[in-house]
């Protein structure tokens, strides 16, 4: 019994010493702060009294300065490289239409479903006329071969700058840009494709208050490959196949026939 009491007394003494040491250490820290001019809650000063130069408490900042408020309105140009090494810059803010930016990573498991959905082009259920652009981090952080393996027919830009410009917190992350106003009409995180489609549908509906005529039709008109295919089709239908002599005229007579009008002088 006596031994137990003695033991308890010793423990209490040790704990008292520990508390005293902590109090002293705390007092040393406060004294050091005061000597640095960063006193907090000095009881000698009236907190309601107007601060006098050099006499009042100095505000203390803990940790690094906070970043300025996040700007979620701008829509900077997305510039980077494609997985095949091309350079690509798309001014989504002046594209004339709506563009869905999908910030994805090759290694994130939540992104897999989006890669699969977007690899076939614009996914079913996406409102018509919305362009889709997948943005991964740059080749210094993502392997182009890994990205290429997932991209399929999706248009992909690898650009760490775009992630920084759009202040992407992590992947998957999506932003809908209105290319007529140069602003983001919506952005956020989605974990499933139906959730994304609903977000896009809602953002597009809320953002589109202008008449349809003011939107620019981004669908390519007939020209380039379409025009060439159309010409090929017309020639085939007329019975003119590759190698037909009429495709290789050697004189104006071959072009216009023997009875062509005489060329006007001048």
């Amino acid at each position: 019994m006596v031994a137990l009491v003695v033991g308890l007394v010793v423990v209490v003494l040790l704990l008292s010493l520990l508390v005293a040491g902590l109090l002293r250490s705390h007092a040393d820290i406060l004294r050091a702060l005061h000597s640095l001019g960063a006193g907090v809650g000095d009881p000698a000063l009236d907190p309601d009294a107007p601060a006098q130069a050099g006499a009042g408490p100095t505000p203390v900042t803990i940790g690094p300065p906070l970043p300025p408020e996040r700007s979620a309105a701008g829509a900077p140009t997305v510039a980077g490289v494609t997985p095949t090494g091309e350079a690509l810059a798309l001014p989504v803010g002046s594209s004339g239409g709506l563009t869905l930016l999908a910030f994805l990573s090759s290694g994130c498991t939540s992104c897999a479903a989006f890669w699969q959905a977007l690899s076939g082009g614009a996914p079913a259920g996406l409102p018509p006329g919305i362009g889709v652009l997948v943005v991964t981090k740059g080749p210094e952080l993502e392997a182009p071969t890994e990205v290429a393996a997932r991209a399929g027919r999706a248009r992909v830009v690898m650009s760490s700058e775009a992630w920084s410009d759009y202040e992407v917190p992590g992947s998957p992350f999506f932003a809908l840009v209105d290319g007529t106003t140069g602003r983001r009409t919506g952005e956020g995180v989605a974990n499933h494709l139906p959730q994304l489609l609903e977000l896009v549908r809602r953002a597009a509906a809320e953002g589109d208050t202008r008449p349809a005529a003011s939107r620019r039709d981004r669908r390519p008109r007939e020209g380039g490959p379409e025009r060439e295919h159309s010409n090929d089709r017309a020639l085939r239908e007329a019975g003119i196949l590759p190698g037909d002599p009429s495709l290789y005229p050697r004189s104006l007579d071959d072009l216009h026939g023997q009875g062509r009008p005489e060329r006007q002088a001048g």
Partner: peptide, 21 residues
């Protein structure tokens, strides 16, 4: 270009210049 370039554009703008404002 100052406008949205389609994915397939001819070397000298075929398929793109028709979309110009």
């Amino acid at each position: 270009a100052t406008f949205w370039l389609p994915e397939e554009v001819g070397d000298f703008g075929g398929g793109a210049v028709t979309s110009m404002r």
